[in-house]
Simulated scan of single mutants.
Amino acid sequence: MELHCAREVFTSIFKTGAVTKKCCGELKVLGKVCHDAFVKKTLEDPIYKNLSESAIVKKSTKTWNTCALVIDISPSSSA
């Protein structure tokens, strides 16, 4: 995944932002398992200890599902 796409995905989950179609395509290549592992590992960092894990998981799912609508991938079944 290109650095600017990694930043887009990160920002959409941990801050506020959107993911472009191009970066959604790169996220698809990584896959849902990698996406979820990235979020989980980031939440383990002490820098992010004050963030609501449930809110981040929701934003992560929303980011994945939004990309699923933009490109042809399966949406997440978890909420």
Rank of each mutant, 00 (worst) to 15 (best):
D36C: 11
F38R: 13
W64I: 00
I47G: 07
E2R: 15
S76H: 02
T11D: 09
I47M: 12
A68E: 00
C23T: 01
I73A: 11
G31R: 04
V33E: 15
H35M: 12
V70D: 04
V19D: 01
F38C: 14
K22T: 15
I47E: 13
V29F: 04
V29G: 06
K59R: 15
V19F: 01
P75L: 09
R7W: 03
R7S: 08
Y48W: 11
S12I: 06
K62T: 13
L30M: 13
S52N: 15
S74N: 11
P46R: 15
S54C: 09
C5Y: 03
S60D: 02
K41W: 01
E2G: 08
P75E: 11
K59D: 02
A37C: 08
A37K: 14
N65K: 07
A79W: 04
K32Q: 12
P46T: 07
T20V: 09
E26A: 12
S60M: 02
F10K: 02
K59M: 02
S52A: 09
D45Y: 02
T11K: 07
S12M: 07
V57Q: 12
A37F: 05
T42P: 03
G17S: 03
V9F: 00
K59Q: 06
C24F: 04
E2C: 10
E26R: 09
L27S: 13
S12T: 08
Y48I: 01
C5H: 02
K58A: 11
C24L: 09
T16V: 11
L27E: 14
S76G: 05
I47Q: 10
Y48L: 06
E2T: 13
T42Y: 03
V33H: 10
F38Q: 11
I56C: 08
K21I: 09
A37P: 05
A79K: 11
E8Q: 15
K49L: 06
I13A: 01
L51K: 11
K22A: 14
K15P: 04
G17I: 02
T63R: 00
V33L: 13
C23K: 01
V57P: 00
A6V: 04
G17P: 03
I47T: 14
E44W: 02
R7K: 12
V39G: 00
V57G: 01
D45M: 05
N50Q: 10
K22S: 13
I71N: 14
G25E: 15
G31V: 03
V29I: 14
K15Q: 14
I73F: 04
G31I: 03
V33I: 11
G25K: 10
E53L: 05
S60N: 03
P75Q: 14
I73H: 05
I47W: 05
K49V: 09
K58N: 04
V29T: 15
V29Q: 11
K15H: 07
A79G: 07
L51W: 02
V70L: 15
T61A: 06
S52F: 04
C23D: 01
C5I: 03
L69N: 06
F10C: 01
D72I: 03
P75G: 14
W64G: 00
E2I: 06
D72K: 15
K41S: 04
N65V: 09
K62R: 12
N65S: 08
K59A: 05
V9M: 01
S12R: 08
S76R: 13
D36G: 06
S77K: 15
I56E: 04
K15S: 14
M1H: 09
L69P: 00
